[in-house]
Computed example of a mutant assay.
Amino acid sequence: MPEAQATAGIGGGVPGRAVVLGATGSVGRQVCAAFAARGWRVHGVARRRTAHPAGDGFTAMDLAAARPERIGELFTALSADVVVNAAGGWGDTGKEMTYSHLRLVDRLLAGLAPVPHGPRLVHIGSVHEYGPVPHGTLMREDAPPRPVTPYAKVKLATSRAVLEAVREHGIDAVVLRAANMSGPYPPQESFLAALMLRIRTALAEGGRLELSIADAQRDFIDVRDVAAAVVRAGQARVGGLVLNIGRGDAVPVRDLVAWLVEAAAFPPDRIDYRDARVVSKGGDWTRLDIGRARRLLSWAPRIGLRDSVHGMWQASAATAG
């Protein structure tokens, strides 16, 4: 769909039923909360239920293993207006990530195709789909993607599968290509979660903290701002498009580390900064052009990154407590 044809107002903006896949994950739990806060009925789907609430209903299902018919029956029974794909775990091999991402999306799309009322699918992609770019590049949605890591390649394959389903099978879907995320409850595999664990361990043991920080600048966004964009995308007529979701800024990774150390109140005299060069797996530079999302979703990031990092530590401290 040409961008000029995309207009807001599916369902007149009236809250309906949102089904969130991966509802117990870092992004999914925030998406559930964002829909619920706006009056939507929320049904969560994940492999297993966790302690925190995921909406007013929940179904335990391994989407990568489920029959497409079973997935479609669930959407039909719930009369889903919006389906959000925030699912897909991390794996140690390309085969594992293909299973948890691409196989899941293939079954999801096959299950969606025969659903009578055609719910909107909001698929959450990744900035890493673009691959490494030269320093200073503003990454636009029409840039040719050149991913290099197994994770980035499989994420691009899922986004392409969604867009092909729009063209070939008339599925109503949009891809949100999200920047690196901060904020409460980051995935355990993320850089920030790993750093939080190291800080917490050093605090508990009274030891020193050694830090080697990549000389990289990246576009980071709070996960709650991503969730707000998902809600907007569920209601706007933007089917068939890719929209970048970020802050539109390249922030030094050193700044995020400093804010996290600050949030933890870690004693500066117990930190050893090493000069060893650290190469970022996601590239040394990311900065998304978010103009399309601003125009078509009437959306903008609202949470500052320092507040986001502090909120991440506070949520972690509450959970640990």
Score class of each variant (00 low, 15 high):
Ala33Pro: 11
Ala34Leu: 01
Ala34Asp: 00
Phe35Pro: 08
Ala36Trp: 13
Ala36His: 02
Ala36Met: 03
Ala37Pro: 06
Arg38Glu: 15
Gly39Lys: 11
Trp40Ser: 03
Val42Leu: 07
Val42Gln: 01
His43Val: 03
Val45Thr: 06
Ala46Arg: 06
Ala46Gly: 03
Ala46Val: 10
Arg48Tyr: 15
Arg49Asp: 07
Arg49Ser: 05
Thr50Trp: 06
Ala51Phe: 08
His52Val: 00
His52Met: 14
Pro53Gly: 08
Pro53Thr: 14
Ala54Gln: 14
Ala54Phe: 15
Asp56Val: 14
Thr59Leu: 10
Met61Gln: 10
Asp62Asn: 07
Leu63Cys: 13
Leu63Arg: 09
Ala64Val: 06
Ala65Pro: 03
Ala65Val: 10
Arg67Ile: 00
Arg67Lys: 15
Pro68His: 13
Glu69Ser: 15
Glu69Asn: 13
Ile71Ser: 11
Glu73Met: 06
Leu74Lys: 05
Phe75Asp: 04
Ala77Pro: 06
Ala77Cys: 00
Leu78Val: 09
Leu78Ser: 04
Leu78Lys: 03
Ser79Ile: 09
Ala80Ile: 10
Val83Ala: 08
Val83Gln: 00
Val84Gln: 02
Ala86Ser: 01
Ala87Glu: 12
Ala87Asn: 04
Gly88Ser: 12
Gly88Val: 02
Gly88Lys: 11
Gly89Glu: 04
Thr93Asn: 07
Gly94Phe: 09
Lys95Gly: 12
Lys95Ile: 03
Met97Arg: 13
Tyr99Leu: 04
Ser100Tyr: 06
Ser100Gln: 14
His101Val: 13
Leu102Tyr: 02
Arg103Ser: 09
Leu104Asn: 14
Leu104Asp: 06
Val105Arg: 01
Arg107Lys: 01
Arg107His: 11
Ala110Gln: 14
Ala110Cys: 01
Ala113Met: 02
Ala113Asn: 05
Pro116Ala: 03
His117Tyr: 11
His117Ser: 09
Arg120Asn: 09
Arg120Met: 14
Val122Ile: 06
